[in-house]
Each structure stands twice: as structure tokens, then as C-alpha cells.
């Protein structure tokens, strides 16, 4: 046995040689930082070796009202995005499917995918400008209808909705691609038969299209659930300001600000690790759920 393994390795030595730098990259950029995350259990010393500190930093974290608020914000923002945004790409895919002119459909599609490729820095810039008070587009329209202009970016009542809307703006088109593909793979004969039976387009949408894409819907939903702890660092980071910080601060921005900027390295790493472990648990359990429901894992 052992010699046959050796034979296979020797035979494929060029392959392993090519794989080596790739595996090294993964060890350096992924596994060493994982090992580095042990500073969550240590006190960082500038001179000499770090001292083990047990779960001291986690205790500190869980007794901190700031972190409690940050954790709450993460859950609220993520839940708002998930439940409000989730159905929209499906509706969009349905609408696109109803368009009879291929040229029109392609034109619309090429426009609505574009925002996905813009950076959050740019998107934040666009939204700050559009929502500016009083001369951004939105407030111009409000003034036209004799409504008071609102300073959306600095209003604690509105900023989370700005996150929801800008996320919709960025991802609705791109996220519809999966559903469009699922719809396209439905056999046209189903529609032909339904048409002969006198089914209206609406009846067809509900009785043919919807059932056919339910597996895709379930898969995407489960996948989103797995990434629930990612409330959207880049978005929040680029759109936050001092006026709304208590409403929008999430775990990732906390790690950056309190951990890296203020130099509380162990505390910041502990917060990141806490989020990572919850995320890991979510992904593993959604993977199990997915296998049960759709017969296919997330991977």
C-alpha cells in the first residue's frame, strides 16, 4: 500500500510542485492569521512574549454595553437586509421573464447588473450626494411636493433604511441572475401546454415558474442565513458618521475602531473571533439544513 502511494506521489511530482506555492499562500494568508487569532486569549506585550490571559477579554467584551449595542446593531441591520431584500431579485426575475422583446430585456439586464461592480466607496459617494439636504435629488423631490427635506445620512431614524436601499440598489440585479437562469431552464413545452389550456400569464407565473424555481429560492435563502453575521462592513464603514454611530456600529466596524485603531488588539480579536464562531456555527448548520431540504450541501 505505502509503496503504491509513494509511486503515485512520485508520478505526480510536477503536480505537487505546482500546487506547493498555492498551498503556501493559503497557509500564509489564511492559516497563520487563524493561529494569530490566539491573541484573543492573551495580553499583548510590546517587549517579550505575550502572556496568556484566559477568557479575560471575552469577559470584558460581554460585559461591555458598547459591544452589546454593536452586536444588536449587527443583528438588526442584517435581519432588515435579509428579509426585506430577499424577495426582490425573485420578483425582478419574474418581471424580466414576462418581457417579450429580447432586446429590451437584455438592455435592462445590462444596466441593472452594473452597480454590483462599483466599490462601496463610490456607492457611498453617490448616496451621500443623492440624499444630501437640501439639494440632493431625493430632497429636491420632497421640496417639490412641499415636504420638509430630511438629512438622511445623519438621521438615526433613516440611516439603516439607507443601508437597506443602497444594498438593494447594488445587488438586486446581480442577485436576480441565479433566478433568471433557473427560469430559463424550465422546459418551454410546459408553457405551451398551459397556453393551450387557456392559462393567463399570471397563472403561468404562479403554477409553472414559481414551483420550478423553489429549490433555487430555498438554496439562496439558506446560503444567506449562513452569512447572516456579515452585516456589510464596507457599506457601513463608508456610510457611517459620528451622528449615527450608535445606530450603525456593527461588530466588524467595532473590530476596526476599538481593536486596530485604538490598539485594543486582544479585545478586537476577541470580538472578531466571537463573530467568526457564530458565523461558523451558522454555516455548518445551514449546510446540514440544506442537505436535508434540497438534498445538496452548501458546498
Amino acid at each position: 500500500m505505502a509503496s503504491s502511494v509513494r509511486k503515485r506521489i512520485v508520478k505526480d511530482r510536477q503536480m505537487y510542485l505546482m500546487l506547493l506555492p498555492v498551498i503556501l499562500f493559503f497557509i500564509i494568508w489564511h492559516y497563520i492569521p487563524m493561529w494569530g487569532a490566539r491573541i484573543a486569549f492573551q495580553d499583548v506585550r510590546y517587549v517579550g512574549a505575550n502572556q496568556w490571559a484566559g477568557v479575560k477579554h471575552f469577559k470584558m467584551l460581554f460585559s461591555s454595553p458598547v459591544f452589546f449595542n454593536v452586536f444588536k446593531n449587527t443583528l438588526i441591520i442584517s435581519a432588515m437586509k435579509m428579509f426585506i431584500i430577499f424577495p426582490l431579485p425573485i420578483i425582478l426575475a419574474f418581471m424580466l421573464n414576462e418581457v417579450s422583446s429580447t432586446g429590451y430585456r437584455k438592455g435592462i439586464q445590462s444596466v441593472i447588473y452594473l452597480p454590483h461592480f462599483l466599490s462601496w466607496v463610490v456607492i457611498a459617494g453617490l448616496f451621500i450626494s443623492m440624499l444630501a439636504s437640501p439639494d440632493g435629488a431625493v430632497n429636491k423631490v420632497r421640496i417639490f411636493f412641499h415636504l420638509k427635506p430630511i438629512s438622511y445620512m445623519t438621521s438615526t431614524h433613516h440611516i439603516r433604511w439607507v443601508f437597506v436601499f443602497s444594498e438593494i440598489w447594488r445587488s438586486i440585479g446581480w442577485d436576480s441572475i441565479l433566478y433568471i437562469a433557473a427560469i430559463n431552464s424550465i422546459s418551454p413545452t410546459l408553457y405551451e401546454a398551459a397556453t393551450i389550456d387557456g392559462a393567463t400569464p399570471l397563472q403561468q407565473a404562479f403554477n409553472i415558474t414559481l414551483p420550478a424555481i423553489v429549490p433555487t429560492i430555498i438554496t439562496v435563502f439558506i446560503l444567506n442565513l449562513g452569512f447572516f453575521m456579515n452585516a456589510g462592513f464596507d457599506q457601513v464603514f463608508n456610510m457611517m458618521n459620528d451622528a449615527v454611530i450608535n445606530t450603525v456600529d456593527i461588530i466588524d466596524t467595532y473590530v476596526y475602531r476599538v481593536g486596530l485603531m485604538q490598539g485594543n488588539y486582544s479585545l478586537g480579536t476577541a470580538a472578531g473571533l466571537f463573530k467568526g464562531v457564530i458565523g461558523l456555527f451558522l454555516i455548518l448548520s445551514t449546510d446540514k439544513l440544506s442537505r436535508k431540504v434540497t438534498g445538496e450541501g452548501v458546498w
Binding site: W29, I32, P33, M34, W35, G36, V255, G259, T269, G272
Partner: peptide
């Protein structure tokens, strides 16, 4: 893909 060391260990690396 499902677990990472995080921002601060990356920085230290």
C-alpha cells in the same frame, strides 16, 4: 471560506 483569523491577526502578519 468559512473561517478566518480576522483583521488584527492579518495586520500583525
Amino acid at each position: 471560506m468559512i473561517f478566518e483569523g480576522g483583521l488584527i491577526p492579518d495586520y500583525f502578519l
